[in-house]
Computed example of a mutant assay.
Amino acid sequence: MIIRSTCSFLLLLLFALPSTLWGQYTEADWKERDKWMKTEFLLDLMGVEQGNKVADIGCHEGYLSMHLSKKVAESGRVYAVDVRSDRLENLRENAHKRSLGNIVTILGDYDDPKLPERELDMVFIMDTYHEMDAHKKILQHVKSALKPGGKVMVLEKLKDWVRGKSRETQVASHSLSADYVREELKQAGFTIISEIEDHGKWERENDKQMWVIVAQKP
């Protein structure tokens, strides 16, 4: 009887959790995310246009990939990369529902997004860079995949309680400072061309500040 009551309580607790804890990347949240992440502004900042070849690293179920697909149109291509095949399957279903045929899904490795060499105009790494233990290797792969003059955008959130802490402490809280990423991009041979120190609040939560860095391959 005690076991049954405990199981029932845990199930109720699970379904009572905010959707952002276990569904922030699902299709149901996409329209709201357009607003708080200012997605159209970010795409305009990068200059995404018809015919571009772009990559979305850490694509999850395809939120950004769908936006990019529409922007680059039929003459362009979107490489959607994730390390989980179930997410890529969901992305393919989402793309099929929208009749988007210019998205190529890639099951990447944790240290290699497996992108084509010297083919891409832009790479987007949105709320994913902090998960990359092998960030130095990945940045080199990104650099190799970009054409000369190609750009990479990194968007992250910095949580108030880890501000000024070590990189390890920030990463453990699924957060990261722009200071660390800026230096890592420079060390990888990129030139910083644009920064937004405060892009708003991640999921409208006051203790999670978004920042954006755009860097360019020489």
Rank of each mutant, 00 (worst) to 15 (best):
S166M: 00
D86W: 07
H60T: 05
R98Q: 15
Y180F: 15
Y63P: 03
G189T: 10
A188P: 00
A145V: 03
I138R: 02
P113C: 04
V142S: 07
H141Y: 12
K151L: 15
H141E: 13
Q187I: 12
D112L: 04
S65N: 02
R118D: 14
I57W: 00
R98L: 11
S177A: 12
L155G: 11
K186T: 07
F190M: 03
A55P: 08
S194I: 05
Q170R: 06
M132S: 02
H67A: 10
H135V: 03
V181C: 05
K71P: 01
D121Y: 02
H67T: 07
N102I: 08
A73C: 10
V162L: 11
S177L: 04
V54C: 07
L107N: 00
H67P: 06
K186D: 00
K165S: 13
Q140F: 12
D179W: 11
K151H: 13
S65F: 00
K147L: 15
F124C: 07
D82F: 03
V142N: 09
V104C: 08
Q170M: 13
D109S: 14
K136M: 13
M132P: 01
L64C: 04
D198R: 02
L139W: 13
N90K: 15
G149W: 11
K186V: 14
G101P: 05
H96A: 14
L115I: 04
W161T: 09
P113W: 01
G101K: 15
E61W: 11
E195V: 11
T128Q: 06
S99C: 11
L146H: 02
L139N: 14
I57H: 01
R84C: 06
V78S: 10
I125D: 03
E74W: 09
I103G: 07
K151Y: 02
E93Y: 12
D109Y: 07
R182C: 02
K137M: 12
V83R: 00
R92G: 07
R163M: 08
P113D: 01
E131H: 15
L120H: 12
E156F: 05
H135M: 02
K137C: 04
D179T: 11
K151M: 13
P148L: 03
K159T: 10
K186E: 14
H96D: 12
R163Y: 12
I106S: 06
P113Q: 01
A172V: 04
L100N: 04
K70M: 09
K137P: 01
A134S: 14
A55V: 08
H67Y: 08
S175C: 10
R98A: 10
R118Y: 12
G150H: 03
D86G: 08
Q170P: 06
R182S: 12
S69Y: 04
V154N: 01
L139H: 01
